[in-house]
Design a binder for these strands. Structure first.
Lengths: 192, 192
DNA sequence: TGATTATTACCGAACAATCGGTATAATGCA
DNA sequence: TGCATTATACCGATTGTTCGGTAATAATCA
């Protein structure tokens, strides 16, 4: 067989950028074709079910990249604060300094929501669980750990939206740099 | 003329729901027509430039509704915490308990971003300024006020995304209920 | 080794359906 | 009547998708 001009992994990465920039419905095959350098028929060779398959491939690749480039490199022997610092640095890179949106955001809208609901929900819940686990390991009780984990992820997703809407990536970077301290703030004594 | 079955304001409200659920590109004229009960020709009678006009009307109506139903009802004589509590309650209603997304999120993606960039950016910055102003009024210094305002808005937008992605509105409601205390937390002494 | 056969990567052209948008005549109220 | 509204029919362009086919490599076998 002829050697592939671009690895499938790279093709998916380019698709990912288009989907995360234009959304599922906004990503036309023309756009996807231009981004990959593959003509429409060629895309159907790699993704027989078309757009739906492409989106699914993106979801899976993002999930794997998230694990490999964001969570796995965290050294569990470091102080917890340094672990969180590492995660946030990795996240800033994972989201291209806030230039491109999160696939979990993009694929939970419109038609895509119907198609990929389960994958997206699992992706979010998994992230929450992993982060909450780090906090529990650090001595936080179960409930507070989960609460803080959700809060941090809410911030990440919100920072992406605000940065994009305001047209200023600094909102994203500043928000992420503040996350480690917020995760580790002493529990509120006077919590009503 | 035949009495309008629905006021223009109501029509825009229905358009708003479609756009915020399906995104700009995902909102086809068929969908918009079904939601309003108006046939395409009628939509073009009210919105001569078509989809673009409809989206702009939605942006303006949301901005006005935000002012009228979220910010204006806040009684400036109340304690600051109660003012924030009021704002968050209003926000929960403004976003239908987290069922529908924020127009600032939706219209900052894909093709819509090119069309409405300025309106969206202004919308976000305006919100930040108004909230920061409330905090300054409450004795926070300029920089911290702005920082906290951004943080709160990041949370609101993030909570909408996470709730939608996880398919659980409770994430939105819980996050919003936690905002007043976070806005008013004592400044971090040991901030490096 | 060299010829043959699969297997695979990729593409041109066309498909029906739907897209956003328009023209025009009919409708119904003032 | 005059005018705002809607119904119907239609437009060209683009949508996602399919099919038939080409060319290059790998595997097989003589």
């Amino acid at each position: 067989m002829p050697a592939a001009l671009t690895s499938k992994e790279d093709v998916i990465k380019q698709l990912s950028t288009v989907f995360r920039t234009h959304g599922y419905e906004g990503s036309t095959l023309t756009l996807l074709s231009e981004a990959t350098g593959l003509v429409k028929a060629s895309l159907y060779h790699y993704f027989p079910k078309g757009k739906q398959d492409m989106a699914l491939a993106v979801i899976n690749q993002r999930s794997e990249t998230f694990r490999r480039e964001v969570m796995d490199p965290i050294n569990p022997n470091l102080a917890l604060r340094d672990q969180f610092k590492c995660m946030c640095d990795n996240l800033i890179h994972f989201y291209d300094q806030g230039r491109v949106s999160c696939s979990l955001e993009v694929f939970s809208m419109g038609q895509a929501k119907l198609l990929f609901r389960d994958y997206i929900a699992k992706g979010i819940e998994n992230w929450i669980l992993r982060l909450a686990n780090m906090l529990k390991q650090g001595g936080f009780d179960e409930q507070l750990a989960r609460q803080r984990a959700i809060d941090a992820i809410v911030r990440v997703e919100g920072a992406l939206v605000v940065a994009r809407a305001a047209g200023n990536q600094q909102y994203f970077i500043d928000t992420l740099n503040a996350i480690p301290d917020q995760l580790l703030a002493p529990p509120d004594q006077a919590s009503k």
